[in-house]
Simulated assay, not measured.
Amino acid sequence: MFFEGSEKKAEILIDGEQLSLLNDIDDEFWSALVNRSQAQILSSIENEYCKAFLLSESSLFVWSDRILILTCGETQLVKAVEFFIQKFGTKAIKQLTYQRKNEYFSNAQPSCFGDDIKLINQYLPGKAYRFGEMDSHHNYVFHLDNDFTADTDDITYELLAYQISEQASKHLTQPNLSAEEIRQFLCIDSILPGFILDDFVFSPYGYSLNAINEQQYLTIHVTPQMDSSYISFESNVDLLSLAPKLLEILAPKSFDLMSFNEQAFEQKLAALIPIQYVSKSRVCKKLDNGYLVNFANYILPQTTFAEPIMIDISGENHAL
Rank of each mutant, 00 (worst) to 15 (best):
D116S: 04
E57W: 00
F265P: 03
I273S: 07
F131W: 06
L144R: 11
F53S: 02
V283H: 11
W63D: 14
F202V: 02
L160T: 13
L239N: 05
S279K: 15
K94P: 00
Y129D: 07
D145M: 00
N213R: 11
G73M: 08
D27Q: 13
S281R: 00
L70M: 08
G290F: 09
R100S: 12
C284N: 10
E48N: 11
Q174G: 03
E48I: 06
Q184A: 15
D312P: 10
S43T: 08
E7A: 10
F185H: 11
I220Q: 03
L300H: 08
N236T: 09
S136A: 14
L144K: 11
D238M: 08
S208N: 13
Q95D: 15
M226K: 14
I67V: 14
N47M: 02
S169Y: 01
L186Y: 09
I12S: 08
E180W: 01
Y277T: 13
E11M: 14
P110Q: 05
T90P: 00
F2Q: 11
L300C: 07
L320R: 09
S165E: 04
K280W: 02
S106M: 08
A243S: 15
A128F: 07
K79Y: 07
G315M: 03
K87N: 07
S136P: 00
C112I: 10
K94M: 06
E248V: 01
D154G: 03
F195K: 10
A128G: 05
T152F: 01
S241A: 12
F105I: 14
I117N: 06
K127I: 13
I117A: 01
A32L: 12
F295T: 12
L33G: 01
L242V: 07
A306E: 12
E57K: 12
E248H: 10
I275L: 08
K285C: 09
Q174F: 04
S136T: 13
L22N: 10
F148S: 09
D153N: 15
V293W: 00
F142R: 04
E234A: 09
V237R: 08
S20C: 06
A251K: 15
G114M: 08
V237W: 00
A108I: 09
R66C: 08
G126W: 01
I249G: 04
